[in-house]
Amino acid sequence: MSENFVSSNDTQLVVFRLGREEYGVSILQVQEIKRMLEIARVPQSPDYVKGVINLRGNVLPVIDLKKRLGLLPGEYTDDTRVIIVKVADIVVGIIVDAVSEVTSINSDSIEPPQTIVSGVNAQYLSGVGKHEDRLLILLNLEAIVGVGLELAKNS
């Protein structure tokens, strides 16, 4: 049953919410999802770096995804979650408004990002997926995290 359900063309996504839009990242990049926790501010870091957290003895940077994508910042609520992702050996947390579900989406229903017009800089996107009657914005975590590396170096 499940074999039919997840075919080779399917990508499994962790779906989360930022503002009123839904976003997705590949489940393979997600390590775990945490409730909001205590974050230590890091001085002289790029403004979208919220700070660092202690995750079982490891110090990890946390990125405020809304700030990173240039969206309007909002208050943290009970639904706010930190998704711990691993991108090219770098483990970081990203703050999202809420995590809604894990779903699978067929690769055919993913379109390249240039067709999207939204408030988000296209380089941070890897595409948009149609799932049932919803649109999921797929993030390019490499760009989101990797570009941060350069900025941190310049500052």
Binding site: A40, V42, P43, Q44, S45, V49, V52, N54, G57, N58, V59, L60, P61, D89, I90, V91, V92, V145, G148, L149, A152, K153, N154, S155
Partner: peptide, 18 residues
């Protein structure tokens, strides 16, 4: 503890501790 690659460029910090 190292701050990791992402924040390695911040010179005023030598690292972090728990």
């Amino acid at each position: 503890k190292s701050l990791g690659k992402l924040l390695a460029g911040i010179k005023i910090l030598a690292g972090a501790t728990i």
